[in-house]
Design a binder for these strands. Structure first.
Length: 586
DNA sequence: GTGGGCTATAAGC
DNA sequence: TTCTGACTGATTCGG
DNA sequence: CCGAATCAGTCAGAAGCTTATAGCCCAC
């Protein structure tokens, strides 16, 4: 298939938001694709080169070129200054449009495009992705520039977007599955395709199976030790009453704030997968060791949360410290300073039996039978109840002890791989926060929006707290989540009236927004947590470490009743930070 | 040649 | 991680 | 009874902070 044909479908997909139309466009595309290229087409549509769990030897699953390098490639192929390309990009909010714009500008100076095939484009980009070592950045940029030069402007638009991992077509994995079903002339086939996908986490692979061995082949796909199962996800509710009303009798687990890990113990080998199916086995050798120790002769797939803890106090560490274990180098040293616990909450497979269709209670009993006392692997704490009072008590105690909240699981519910539904429901401490817990932040600048936010000319605001001691505004977060489109438009107009060319003298910020704004408008914001930050200036110590917000979002709109000096103060932020509880010992 | 600082990217939540 | 917006499919409402 | 209105659920794509890593650059 010609790459241009793929691009033509992309253009049509982008022109509609109707899902039924997208299914039809995609299924036509799939119909025209050969068995040797369908997987590539699907990986490309998802912004990837291959599934994330493929062995490192097969090459990276993402290109490793995002906006800055792409801008340099665009500028290079058009023979202009990257600064100019950057300005244009900021205005358009889409790296692809920038690429296309400059390709069109210089179209008459280039040779006619060769008409590359999908496979040729894929292979070229795959080679670029694999470049590494000294001089590789420049090589990548050059090679990308050459690719832009060899295709038509519209193709360079989608190549740029693909390489940046932001195709923005409205096509996710669910849409691909639906379209594959439609290609087989019945949307009902989606169930089988979806099951195969959730069991193997390889969308292109499912299509390969479909094209090679038909629906029968797809129906035969099941759990496979060594291939990550897409993790089940939680819905959210904001009170114990709602949870009981919705779920009835359920198991209630502590929600640990660490890394979601799916551990596969095969005949010989152990493999650990992240929430997004990355292979992270080398990060957690103690988990792998424990698995071979506990299950020398078993094949088993477990799921749980890995957290670091302090060996002297026994206290579990906050997420930011557990993050230290997300590393490839010096794992041995990190292991000593940041030892791990793996809190297991599910068993998906054991010695030939796929337990995902069984109810939670059954899986739980298998889990309890299998996991003995162990210093590394522990079964997550859980209670069983159909009573809102009891659930609320367990939640309160968990929060008291410093945990994130709880997850309620319907006792009879199967493990719904890859799906967010009300089989599992989380209740986090942050969902229950009273309005008084929100902060009033002063806007001191804003950034242009990207993608669908580009049309508003604003995507995020730089927000500050007030420091009465020095009469200064100090940044604590950028915030873009929580604005409606209407609010964004109004906000832009308001802020532009107060835009200033330079950083206002009474604003402290290490970050330079696209537009500085005189501190006047106050918004209320919510956050899950306050963290120490080397990027924000609020409460910064001698080392320049200040405070920032975890998961910041806007609540409501501009506070008409508050002026800049009514903003939350630095001291209040520090108090909120101190009030956060240390996590329980284990 | 080495090391530190800087920039860009990816990935965890 | 949180949030908004568009669409879909099912259910309820009202003449 | 049928079309209109409503509602809940699904899906995708905006947005955040933090850490680790890779490669580049420059001073020593």
């Amino acid at each position: 298939m010609q790459f241009l044909m793929l691009v033509t479908t992309f253009v049509a997909l982008e022109a509609t938001t109707k899902r039924l139309e997208m299914f039809s466009l995609l299924s036509d595309l799939f119909q025209a694709a050969g068995a040797d290229e369908i997987d590539k087409i699907i990986y490309i549509s998802q912004g990837h080169l291959r599934p994330p769990f493929y062995p490192l030897t097969s090459g990276p699953h993402v290109v490793g070129m995002s906006e800055k390098y792409l801008l340099r490639a665009i500028a290079k192929s058009a023979g202009l200054d990257p600064k100019e390309a950057e300005r244009r990009y900021r205005e358009m909010g889409d790296i692809g449009s920038a690429a296309k714009y400059y390709a069109e500008l210089t179209a008459d100076t280039r040779p006619a495009p060769d008409g590359l095939s999908v496979t040729e484009v894929y292979d070229t980009i795959d080679k670029i992705a694999a470049l590494h070592g000294e001089g590789s950045v420049e090589e990548k940029i050059d090679a990308t520039g050459r690719l832009f030069g060899a295709v038509s402007p519209i193709e360079s638009q989608y190549i740029a977007r693909f390489m940046a991992g932001k195709l923005r077509l409205g096509v996710g994995d669910a849409t691909v599955l639906e379209a594959l079903a439609l290609k087989m002339e019945d949307r009902a086939h989606r169930a089988a395709l979806e099951r195969a996908y959730h069991m193997t986490s390889d969308l292109g692979g499912v299509a390969r199976t479909l094209y090679g061995r038909g629906l029968v082949g797809v129906q035969g796909v099941g759990v496979c030790v060594g291939l990550p199962i897409r993790p089940a996800l939680c819905e959210r509710l904001s009170s114990a009453e709602e949870i009981i009303e919705k779920m009835g009798l359920c198991a209630v687990e502590i929600k640990y704030d660490g890394f979601r890990c799916q551990v596969h113990k095969g005949k010989e080998e152990v493999a650990i997968f992240s929430r997004n199916q990355e292979r992270i086995t080398p990060m957690f050798p103690e988990i792998a060791d424990a698995m071979t120790r506990l299950f020398p002769n078993d094949e088993i797939i477990l799921e749980g949360e890995a957290l670091s803890f302090d060996e002297t106090t026994g206290a579990l560490r906050p997420f930011q410290e557990t993050l230290q274990r997300k590393r490839k180098h010096d794992v041995t040293a990190a292991k000593a300073s940041y030892p791990l616990k793996y809190f297991v909450f599910d068993c998906l497979y054991l010695n030939g039996t796929d337990y995902t269709p069984y109810g939670y209670a059954k899986r739980r009993s298998v889990l309890l039978k299998q996991i003995p006392q162990d210093p590394v692997i522990e079964v997550a704490e859980v209670i069983e109840t159909d009573n809102a009072r009891a659930l609320a008590d367990f939640f309160d105690r968990s929060v008291e002890r410093g945990f994130e909240g709880i997850v309620a699981k319907k006792l009879g519910g199967p493990y719904t791989a890859g799906v967010r539904n009300f089989n599992w429901v989380k209740l986090k401490r942050s969902y229950r926060s009273a309005p008084s817990d929100s902060m009033d932040l002063c806007i001191v600048g804003y950034d242009a929006g990207r993608g669908s936010r580009a049309v508003f000319g604003i995507g995020t605001v730089l927000a500050a707290v007030y420091d009465p001691a020095g009469d200064r505004f100090k940044t604590v977060s950028k915030i873009g989540t929580g604005f409606s489109e209407d609010e964004l438009a109004r906000l832009k107009a308001l802020l532009d009236a107060d835009a200033v060319a330079e950083r206002p003298a009474h604003v402290d910020s290490t970050y330079t927004p696209h537009v500085w704004v005189y501190p006047r408008y106050v918004i209320s914001a919510l956050a899950d947590e306050i963290t120490r930050s080397s990027h924000h200036t609020a409460g910064a110590d001698a080392q320049g470490i200040g405070y920032a917000l975890r998961f910041p979002r806007v609540r409501g709109f501009i506070r008409e009743d508050k002026g800049a000096y009514d903003a939350t103060t630095v001291d209040e932020i520090v108090t909120l930070y101190r009030r956060q509880r240390k996590i329980d010992t284990v």
